[in-house]
């Protein structure tokens, strides 16, 4: 079938997944003992029982679970993620402000990872068994093993404090797209991207090394095509399928990594907000961010599916 039909069908199948994600997110938070109102009451013991009941109504925490879920879902669909308990401010405002920050950080990390990993993987595969390959694999192993908060702090220590090349704090007065801000993102981007880069390198290498043994490679060489064309046009496209799979799962890893990296670099994104909300038991915020993250992962996988179909025509028959 055509690419377009494939994409449409895949897109439609994403909807039930998102629905399931919402049910699970909601269910998880309602299975935990206590609810936002009991938290509020603990902080203010003079809240009377009547008031407590009223609060429950107001926060939509009364009634059977399924009804609460539907109420919550219908709000979420119009962008209303309820309010922060402590301050009464709209959670959607928080999301709006912080989501772009995390997205940009994640994008940096992602781009860095891919930009390093694909050439490194190709290099390692083409030079399989030789020094370049071994070096690339050792670096990849280190990248995966280094804890990201340590790496972040180390980068700050070396590049900000010793070398003075970057500020320690992000330039908070400047808008996100300002070159200074983007420049600041280099260090956190590298931190977040390193582990991802390591994984992608390994997969790229393996995938490519396998493909290089395929018959069509010999055939392409037999046709007299230059090695460059053989590797980058013919082999690469076939090797990318595994990488795309991995890259999609990396999204979740990058979002998770952003929690730590944003704290270390004082980056005002969803990750640091998540930690803060957890510490303060701001259930609505935590739920909203969980949902957003889950949606992001689902979308990443959808994109991966689309990319497969673009890369490999055989897959469109699914």
């Amino acid at each position: 079938m055509s690419l377009r039909r494939f994409v449409v069908r895949r897109a439609l199948s994403v909807v039930p997944v998102l629905f399931g994600v919402s049910v699970i997110t909601f269910g998880l938070f309602h299975l935990t003992p206590g609810d936002p109102v009991s938290q509020l009451v603990a902080l203010n013991p003079d809240v009377s029982a009547a008031e407590e009941a009223r609060l429950r109504e107001r926060w939509g925490l009364s009634g059977p679970v399924w009804r609460q879920y539907l109420a919550w879902l219908s709000n979420v669909l119009v962008g209303d993620f309820s309010r922060e308990l402590r301050t009464g401010r709209a959670v959607s405002g928080i999301l709006w402000r912080r989501l772009p920050e995390t997205i940009v950080l994640g994008a940096f990390g992602w781009v860095f990872a891919i930009a390093i990993a694909i050439p490194a993987g190709i290099y390692a595969a083409v030079n399989k068994g030789r020094f370049g390959d071994v070096a690339a694999r050792v670096l990849a192993l280190s990248g995966v093993s280094i804890p990201n908060f340590w790496l972040g702090l180390l980068l700050i220590l070396v590049f900000s404090l010793y070398l003075g090349l970057f500020p320690v704090l992000p330039p908070s007065r400047l808008p996100l797209y300002h070159p200074e801000t983007l420049r600041y993102l280099l260090l956190p981007g590298v931190t977040i991207g390193t582990a991802a880069a390591a994984s992608v390198t390994r997969v790229m290498r393996t995938s490519m090394a396998e493909e290089l043994n395929e018959e069509y490679v010999t055939a392409a060489r037999a046709r007299g095509l230059p090695e460059r064309t053989v590797v980058f046009k013919h082999v690469l496209r076939n090797s990318l399928v595994s990488v795309v799979t991995l890259a999609a799962t990396l999204t979740a890893g990058i979002v998770a990594g952003s929690v730590v990296v944003e704290s270390v670099f004082n980056w005002p994104g969803l990750g640091s907000e998540f930690v803060r909300a957890i510490n303060r038991r701001e259930v609505n915020v935590v739920m909203a961010i969980t949902l957003v993250t889950a949606v992001a992962v689902v979308l990443a996988n959808f994109l991966a599916d689309v990319l497969y179909a673009v890369l490999d025509p055989r897959i469109r028959y699914d």
């Binding site: 069509y216 055939a219 890369l311």
Partner: peptide
């Protein structure tokens, strides 16, 4: 010379073709 002066036909024809093009 390869491909131009000398052409090649392989045993497994489908495997000798790149599946993604």
């Amino acid at each position: 010379v390869r491909g131009d002066g000398i052409g090649t036909v392989f045993q497994d024809a489908r495997a000798a073709l790149n599946p993604v093009y």
